[in-house]
Design a protein around this nucleic acid. Structure first.
Length: 427
RNA sequence: GGAGAGGUGGCUGAGUGGCCGAAAGCGGCGGUCUUGAAAACCGUUGAGGGUUUAUCCCCUCCCAGGGUUCGAAUCCCUGCCUCUCCGCCA
């Protein structure tokens, strides 16, 4: 949610900013609504004031033992009038809110113009894509060769876009998760956090998935409305919903491993083959809750923390700054990390690191107390994958394959794999 | 799943339907005292919003949502949550 004050004081500027997102904001319509709101709110509050003072007078008269009937006659009809005004006010406010909550975050000034991922800007590259003197296999073939990755059986158990892992392949994914959690919690200062995998509608509203992106979610219950989490971002960030965080506890850094569930109603036909786009996948997520003055640096740091994992795994990747058209709804600025996948001969997203500034915080009512002013201020929230474990599994398999189809295990994972250095076929 | 009790400010905890946005205590902040600190004493201390250049003023909020009433923290419904006992259980 954007700052309503901004709309009142700098409407044109907001309109220009939203245009970068190809959002055509109808300022005239808004101004009309806003004027209406102002008038009705003043009227409503006037009526409330009258009710309060008259009721008080009745109470005092009664205490003195006076006849209150004349006073009661005076307030005849006031209640009905007030009720009407309150309904009107609620209606306008609902309209304004509906308009506001459909608007995406304002982009950071450093975000480049552009419509699609074509226009994203490569910031940096790390590592060299490995050269193979044999025909490379993708992870699907490798997984089949090892009898460790079975899409058919998962489809039988559930439906398409699920996977069953076995043996050392399954263990490799678990090793990745452990390695990521350990690295972030012991080296990068994140607090390991365990959270529910099912969340309520308020939480999804807070981080911006609802009401606009309900189609991408798996709903598991109505009354109350409950959903499987599409990312740990939702439960972890919602820890600070309706809270005023103590200055001593700021900034907050949390890391959580969770499965993620995405219905991705709009993505059918894309990445049909393999593990890249699944309804269920494992992810280690980094979340930061910081002061406004710190968020830009925090965004760079958080992205670097995710990059560290790729570097330690010796996986080639590039860092991309998303353009205006590709930046997510709630984000002000996003870096994607794209890992090299030999099986696809291309870079694929493995982490997305975003600074939401106060956009989520305003929806969440997440604040911290500034000791200098003594007043609560909205926090800034950030998050990033550190990393998507399923896709990291794919990257490790494909980048470390041998001519025979064996998979060399990156050094940092070997201790998590019981000391073995390679996954041989048939083992 | 069954039976009972309860949700009030940062915390503990009062609150006969009418100066209650809320006593008191603790904590926090400021001050007096002190060489300094502690203690003691005095003062101050919730959030959101409207109007305004600003002060003032006004509105809303006592778990959430409805209702009764001139007036609700207080009464009535519904939901959620917490605690105690019993049952079941990884």
């Amino acid at each position: 949610m954007l700052d309503p004050q901004l709309f009142r004081s700098e409407l044109e500027s907001v309109q220009v900013q939203l245009k970068r997102r190809a959002v055509d904001f109808n300022a005239d319509f808004y101004t009309d609504l806003e004027n209406k709101r102002k008038a009705i709110q003043v009227k409503t509050q006037k009526l409330q004031n009258e009710r309060n003072s008259r009721s008080k007078a009745i109470g005092q008269a009664k205490a003195k033992g006076e006849d209150v009937q004349p006073l009661l006659d005076q307030v005849q009809g006031l209640g009905e009038q007030l009720k009407q005004a309150e309904i009107e006010l609620a209606d306008v406010q609902l309209q304004i809110q509906g308009m506001m909550e459909g608007l995406p975050n304002i982009l950071d000034a450093s975000v480049p113009a552009g419509k699609s991922e074509e226009d994203n800007i490569e910031i940096s590259r790390w590592g060299e894509p490995p050269k193979f003197d044999f025909a490379v296999r993708d992870h699907v073939d490798l997984g089949a060769l090892h009898k460790g990755m079975d899409f058919e059986v998962a489809a039988k158990i559930t439906s398409a876009r699920f996977v069953a892992l076995k043996g050392n392949i399954a263990r490799l994914q678990r090793a990745l998760v452990q390695f990521m959690l350990d690295t972030h919690s012991t080296e990068h200062g994140y607090e390991e956090t365990y959270v529910p995998y099912i969340v309520n509608a308020d939480s999804l509203y807070g981080t911006g998935q609802l009401p606009k992106f309900a189609d991408d979610l798996f709903k598991v219950s109505s009354n109350p409305d409950l959903y499987l989490i599409p990312t740990a971002e939702v439960p972890v960030t919602n820890i600070v919903r309706n809270e005023i965080v103590d200055n001593a506890d700021m900034p907050m850094r949390m890391v959580a491993h969770t499965p993620c569930f995405r219905s991705e109603a709009g993505a059918y036909g894309r990445d049909v083959r393999g593990l890249i786009r699944q309804h269920q996948f494992e992810k280690v997520e980094l979340v930061q809750v910081v002061r406004a003055s710190e968020s830009e640096q925090a965004h760079e740091d958080l992205t670097a923390h995710a990059e560290t994992i790729l570097q330690k795994l010796n996986l080639p990747y590039r860092k991309v700054l998303l353009c205006a058209g590709d930046t997510g709804f709630s984000s002000a600025k996003t870096y994607d990390l794209e890992v090299w996948l030999p099986g696809q001969d291309t870079f694929r997203e493995i982490s997305s690191c975003s600074n939401f500034k106060d956009f989520q915080a305003r929806r969440l009512k997440a604040r911290w107390r500034n000791p200098e002013t003594g007043k609560p201020e909205l926090v800034h929230t950030l998050n990033g994958s550190g990393l998507a474990a399923g896709r990291t599994l794919v990257a490790v398999m494909e980048n470390n394959q041998t001519a025979e189809g064996n998979i060399n295990i990156p050094e940092v994972l070997q201790s998590y794999m019981g000391g073995i250095t390679v996954i041989n076929i048939g083992k």
